[in-house]
Design a protein around this nucleic acid. Structure first.
Lengths: 206, 206, 206, 206
DNA sequence: AATGAATGAGCATTCATTCAT
DNA sequence: CATGAATGAATGCTCATTCAT
């Protein structure tokens, strides 16, 4: 059984390609039909393979959807990181963080439709906490790193970093959530501008 | 068959009591075990009734979970409304909206654990939009009503009401979401204070 | 419990009226939606009563459908008998039997659509045989009575009465069956003429 | 998922064998216990397989019973055709049609017990008509073909072909029906002789 | 690496039936 | 007589998973 949750294990090229292919098909199917309607058979059908093969490449459904979520978040994280690093000043970094978050969301709607659906797939408190650690902790850590730079550069005022990180990330996610349910109800660009301006003003020294 | 989608139909006392009882049990089960693990059998077991009785009182699973979601949101809405109306000034109303939102969330954790899970139960774009209309539109409408009072009282500056409403509601929901996954990762009280101060400052004239 | 299969028991007026009303509603529902789709609830809905009431008036579903079948066959039998008795000569009686059979069928399509469906509701050999005795034996007996008159009147030739009765009744039922599945595929009037002429010619002395 | 409604799709050997096996078991179970009592579980039990496997090989219950009916009728049709073609003269062909119909019925009682039950499984007028087209049209077409040969050979008189076909097929089916309910009530051999003689005499020139 | 046959547990839903009121 | 609440068994069907080939 080549499948595993330990990413450090050696995988063949074809193995990795298949996993990626299956994850992308899964995300698309979830976005289109919802998580509960997404069976291995449904994913396999859209891919022209058999469901047995999916079971072969993943350690069960949980492994597949965990991998799918991480794929979404890693891609978004990498996108954001690039743009944040391109900025010198902490205030600009924070603005970039918020605005590129929304940019990426807007350009990858199906991923976030799937993500909202997948939030419900962690049932036990343990699973929920594990998801929190792999999904939110890195985001909050990234924000806190920006804060620290802002403090070092004497650009930012003093505030509770953990709370501020939660609030910023929460605002982004909550707006995305409304947009997932009805894209016409929220203007992502406007929200991005509003939030980035407000938070930058909040953290910067007067 | 007493169940119906027409809410105007008369229901007997026992009928209403049973529906409420089943909805509460469903919410509890969903919070504990997750939506996908929550079967009629599971709900019935915890209630000491048969699953046939649930089918008798609800027009299928969709009716049950829709009713459950509306129950959550209506209770929260009523709680918030009371506190908002107790305030005279628009700024205080907005502060009350944000802070009592978090208060209610904190006091009813299982409801919001269930709610996050239930978000994934709307599969088609039509269902998603319908949920948006019954769930988010009232919230945003409430916020916009507060804004209008603020404008009439010459207390608030000018801003885009729809975007501001989305952003405020989104911030509340997004922080709640992180807290659902790990209550230790977010301090709801701190977040409430941070958000209410920031948003009140944002909308009020200098 | 007033319901019973023994027709000799005293029934109140309202009791009899209700039974008749329910049977007619059942026949209509079966004709429209098929036997398997016809539940007590469905019958009750069309009648504006509750399914509990149906259970009160009939000793279970089997009692209801048995009563329904007998209703169909008794009404048809009475109709045919009237017309057969109006004829003097045996040949005319036989012709009347065949032609009024088809007449009645044509005028009561829903009953025979239901009847074809109900044939499948007798599962065990015992039930099947019991149905044969109450449904077909009287028909064949009626035909044999006509034959006997024909023999007494020296109008008919000699033949095996049981077989001839089966064949005549079978021809009527089989044509009806095709007409139930597709009324456009069979012309009942033509079939009636063809069969009555042929059989009368067959049994009469040259 | 190997099951399909497109009959032109390639099926593996094992797939075809399983379908045939399941159909035969279904027919036997229906004959023994009736259509409504025949569940996937019941069929599977008699076969030593799981009900999931039946769902795997058939697109639902409707697919299974449709396939079962066609199996019955195709086998009977092939049997009759062979014997009809072995006859040269149209009169002999007609006699063969009627007599081998009864022969086949007599030798395959369970199939026809099941068939009578299955008649009730077509609920809507559309389904009924579709069944009429696939089940009765071929029979009537076969008879009409015999009539045409009889006319070409100047052996048969002139008559309405559609009505005559309906009447002959109806007579066969109607006698079979009585025999299904009680095999002792009808002598199939006698009925076959009576009907074949009568109909051949009817259509042939004097 | 991939398939397709098979499993078995679980699901929402239907329904005749019972019974207190 | 009639109702409506409740039952419990059954049903078709779905699906992740296993495994021989």
């Amino acid at each position: 059984m080549p499948t595993t949750t330990k990413p450090e294990e050696r995988k063949t090229f074809i193995e990795e390609a298949r996993r990626k292919q299956i994850i992308d098909a899964a995300l698309q199917t979830i976005a289109e039909q919802g998580y509960t309607q997404t069976s291995f058979a449904e994913i396999a059908k859209g891919l022209g393979i058999t469901k047995g093969l999916i079971a072969y490449h993943f350690n069960g459904k949980h492994d597949l959807i965990t991998s799918a979520i991480h794929t979404i978040l890693n891609r978004q994280g990498a996108y954001i990181k690039d743009h944040v690093e391109a900025q010198e000043k902490a205030g600009d970094k924070l603005r970039a963080y918020i605005e590129t978050s929304f940019e990426y969301i807007e350009q990858n709607r199906p991923h976030f439709v799937a993500l909202v659906d997948l939030w419900g797939s962690f049932t036990s408190p343990e699973e929920k906490q594990a998801f929190s650690e792999t999904a939110y902790d890195p985001c909050r850590a990234h924000l806190k790193k920006i804060f620290r730079i802002g403090h070092q550069q004497r650009e930012f005022t003093k505030f509770d970093e953990q709370s501020m990180a939660s609030v910023i990330q929460g605002a982004i996610d909550g707006v995305m959530l409304q947009w997932v349910f009805d894209p016409k109800a929220v203007d992502l660009g406007e929200a991005a501008k509003e939030l980035s301006e407000m938070f930058v003003k909040r953290v910067k020294k007067p």
